[in-house]
Design a protein around this nucleic acid. Structure first.
Lengths: 327, 327
DNA sequence: CGGTAACATGGTATCGGTAACAACTTAAGG
DNA sequence: CCTTAAGTTGTTACCGATACCATGTTACCG
């Protein structure tokens, strides 16, 4: 910047103002400075700016996995809605592990983010303390935590599952099984399972079987493996409620390979309304969530925060039953 | 840090050294300083460090889309291989548009990244100039550019397509159609199309039809739509070579819905060896690429660079024909 | 024509770490 | 007991942009 200042024979202060588009700088001067800066190949140093102003221009985003169409879609919604605002997203993924989240949050906070977005409402005590000490806005997404740290943009996983269970029961299904990751690793999966159990209990179903599809993240392959491992025992159930669409699709495909009739022999439901739900045949019955909308809503919350709004927001984007041909 | 120094009655310099694990600091002192820092809730300021040392600890990564299982997998491979190295990834996505890439690169460079990873070998002139001026290592991935800026970790899209075409022709297929995004938007798609045409020409096929599936990114839905729009004209072809697995899956599903026999009436091939290729039924014939490996190899290149290695690396991770049941 | 406001520009200190060098203490060797 | 080296700690200046305040210049008013 000093070099540019020397080239235009002005002070670095004026150059700084000109490059940031400060109105107080004469318009011609501003254009000239910009032109010279470009000619010299000058690259603005955001690090120095972040240091001096104590504003990093970063927002930290922590996802369980980026290799998941729905989380990726949320990130995209957020990212798209934020283009042009000058905010950079710092992405980290936890692989569905809370200890990894703790480590990640510690690292991200050293970068002075202006806000932090976390997936889910479950965190270690250390993480919670870090977040409170940091005194920056916290947004928890993809869930409606009973005891949120700050802002919330999500939906109730349990309620969404309840819609599915009610639908199945209306159809006369009574012997449900929940197919999901091993308990404990994926908190959203646990919430969904609990939602199924609660809804089933409310409807006087005796019991819901739980089928372990392995450690999170579970996907198509794991769904198929569950069916193989189950063997003829699959006839015990009249509905397989899966933790996600990819798992449901794996289950569906393997069932069809084995000649099991869907939905006559057994109903299959997914979760998340992934692209696969609409293009599989038969189409999957699933819970429609609004991944992209979550991202865009988060962007809205961030903009409110940057505009000076201080009160904590609680946004429930809801979910809906998407009827397919597998139930 | 000054506060911590005061608390332990030592100089900030010693605290700085202790927190970074400098061996010259007495071990007991080091432990004490760390403990006190933790007790005070002190958070290290990476921005200040980046500013003073002129080393940001960032590596910029530019992807066409994060909502694509293969790019996401590359990012994950890179991210996983880099955990613990203290490097933070700065992610940006271009939505397959070179102008967006240009803007993004400009923004990312202001953060002083220590290296930049770009998807593909096509860039605007401005982008190339920015990269050259920046004087930081550049790694181009997912391609083998004829005129690389710096390092390369990729494979030949054309060669991969050539494998597929040769396989189809060996089966006696002669009337090929390429199904992909509108020309111009997705450079990797263009490379694949050109690879198909080149391979077909080399095998004396008269002509390869090109079927436009809409603007990039194209996915399952677009594949299905192509089949609908084609109608009975689909009988004109005996092989539909798709730009990616999701598109191929969409095509496959719609064909089956219409009673078209796969692969008897027409063969369908994908590209990328996405999860969907293995779990669809029939399984997709596709080109196996090594998305995760690309990420891990990039991490290796970065580590070499940080270790002082200066010579440009050219890593071809290759690709392979994956035989499914759709051809 | 003096006074005031609007406009445009510049000087200086500073954000929080750390490189480079200096200095002090203790141990080892002759 | 002196010399030298190893180990440990401290002092100072600085990275590049910008907040804050000061200053100069022009325009307009009664």
């Amino acid at each position: 910047m000093r070099d540019v200042a020397r080239a235009v024979e002005m002070s670095p202060m004026t150059v700084s103002r000109a490059l940031r588009g400060d109105e107080t700088v004469n318009e011609k001067t501003r254009d000239r400075i910009r032109r010279v800066a470009a000619d010299l190949g000058y690259v603005y140093d955001s690090t120095a700016q972040a240091f001096r102003t104590q504003k990093s221009g970063f927002v930290a985003v922590v996802l369980p996995s980026i290799n998941n169409a729905n989380f990726a879609e949320t990130f995209r919604g957020l990212s798209d809605a934020l283009t042009g605002s000058g905010v950079q997203l710092l992405l980290g993924s936890t692989n569905y592990r809370l200890e990894k989240e703790e480590e990640l949050v510690g690292q991200l906070l050293t970068r002075n983010p202006e806000a932090i977005v976390l997936t889910g409402g479950h965190h270690t005590d250390v993480t919670r303390k870090l977040l409170e000490n940091a005194k920056i806005p916290v947004i928890e997404i993809w869930d409606l935590p009973p005891d949120p740290v700050g802002h919330v943009v999500g939906f109730s996983n349990a309620d969404a599952m309840s819609l599915i269970v009610q639908h199945l029961v209306r159809q006369g299904r009574r012997k449900l099984a929940f197919v999901g990751a091993a308990a404990g690793s994926d908190m959203r999966g646990v919430a969904r399972r609990d939602g199924v159990i609660a809804a089933a209990t409310a409807l006087d179903l005796t019991q819901v079987a739980q089928i372990d599809a392995g450690p999170a993240p579970v996907s198509m392959r794991h769904g198929a493996e569950v069916v193989v491992k189950l063997g003829p025992a699959i006839a015990t159930y009249d509905a397989l409620v899966c933790v996600s669409d990819p798992v449901a699709f794996g289950v569906l495909n393997e069932c069809r390979r084995l000649g099991i009739k869907i939905p006559d022999d057994v109903a299959i439901t997914g979760f998340g309304h992934f692209e696969i739900a609409a293009v599989s045949s038969p189409r999957l019955t699933t819970a429609g969530v609004h991944a992209n909308k979550i991202g865009r809503k988060v962007a809205g919350v961030l903009q409110d925060i940057f505009a000076g709004e201080t009160s904590a927001q609680w946004i429930d984007v809801g979910s809906e039953l998407v009827l397919g041909e597998t139930s």
